[in-house]
């Protein structure tokens, strides 16, 4: 197998590395770039733990060859906070108790970010559609829904108040 050069932007930084053709984007993000916030759950597209944004759209990194990301802009959960400040969605997930083990959280938050960027005022149906296929095995979806609503409404940063 001949390695190919892969150039992409990950969390705002240009990266260039040689990858095996049969490496998935998930493999490269986790193993080569050590972005372990990208989780491998089912590895078959069905759970959403590996979701990342490619050119602002949610995709399954377990179903995407790394080389298919050539020239793309990738955002993982590691790239969401800016200047040491959590993104409002991250704050909302913390404040609403929408995180337990945290395994589904990166995918949930990134899918929610793509939704809010596309549609800043989603209703519950829109949120459920955007998160369908993202599975949480512990928190339960009610809290996750509340967190996305809170981020939508700007109702964040109230912890302890």
């Amino acid at each position: 197998m001949q390695k190919h050069l892969l150039t992409m932007r990950v969390n705002g930084e240009q990266v260039e590395l040689a990858v095996r053709p049969n490496a998935t984007l998930l493999d490269v993000l986790r193993e080569d770039l050590e972005l372990t916030g990208v989780k491998e759950g089912c590895s078959e597209g069905a759970c959403g733990a590996c979701a990342v944004l490619m050119n602002n759209e949610p995709i399954r990194s377990c179903l995407t060859l790394a080389l298919e990301a050539n020239g793309a802009e990738i955002l993982t959960i590691e790239g969401l906070a800016t200047g040491g400040r959590l993104h409002p969605l991250q704050e909302a997930f913390v404040e609403q108790g929408a995180v337990q083990c945290g395994f589904c959280t990166p995918g949930m938050i990134l899918s929610s970010k793509a939704l809010l960027d596309r549609n800043p005022q989603p209703n519950d149906e829109d949120i459920k559609t955007a998160l369908a296929g993202s599975f949480c095995r512990c928190t339960g979806y009610a809290k996750i829904l509340e967190a996305v609503r809170a981020a939508r409404d700007g109702d964040v940063g109230n912890e302890g108040s």
Binding site: G45, A46, P58, I59, S111, A132, S134
Partner: peptide, 10 residues
């Protein structure tokens, strides 16, 4: 089809 995050964009 499936779900937005699975195949809508790819």
């Amino acid at each position: 089809i499936g779900a937005l995050g699975i195949q809508r964009f790819r």
